[in-house]
Amino acid sequence: MITFQNISKRYDEDENYALRNINLDIKQGEFIFIVGKSGAGKSTLMKMLLREVYPTSGTLKVSGKNIMKLKEKELPYYRRKIGVVFQDFRLLESKTVYENISFAMEIVQANPKKIQQLTPKILNTVGLRDKARKYPSTLSGGEQQRVAIARSIINSPNILICDEPTGNLDPVTSAGIMDLLSDINSMGTTVIIATHDITMVDRMKRRVIVLDKGHLVSDKIGGYYN
């Protein structure tokens, strides 16, 4: 489904490579951790999937299409098939929980009736049914991340990209978020998580890709230390 072929990325000519010769195959419905220290290339890899960053060389195909060749006007439609979750949640403080989620459907000009039906369902899925009218600032970190996840999956994406989703959360809350992501994955969505939370990675026993200074150094199923 997702194929990285000899992908390299250098932001500036005189800088080191952020990614070097990455070859990677991700199948539909997989649950993948991408681990590595800061500067290992995790974020670059994620941004490339969103086509926010272009590779210096190599090809990146999603569902058989070279996404670097997408026209500017095709990009929004490509992104509608990808959900994104950030470490800092990126919620809109002026909107309620409900509005933060329904907003993602409004943007893609979904039918208002469909928005009214689906938003409470998704709130239920992420366990925030009773927080619909609250504002993000009144929620805990874990709750805010659940809102962000709800927003990212409301348009039924094929792929869910999470950049350090538990980076700002305590271990217990993080475990809850991981379980939620695991549930989403069990419904068929491909989940790709960039993290340096090694304990979490080991607990989940999923496919783990290790990056180091832009190189792919390990690709195993099970855990970081296995």
């Binding site: 500017e72 929004p76 439609y77 490509y78 992104r79 509608r80 994104v84 990126r90 943007i107 348009n155």
Partner: peptide, 10 residues
């Protein structure tokens, strides 16, 4: 930025 990530057209 969020709108762009979610797939809003320009």
């Amino acid at each position: 930025t969020i709108m762009k990530y979610v797939g809003a057209t320009n």
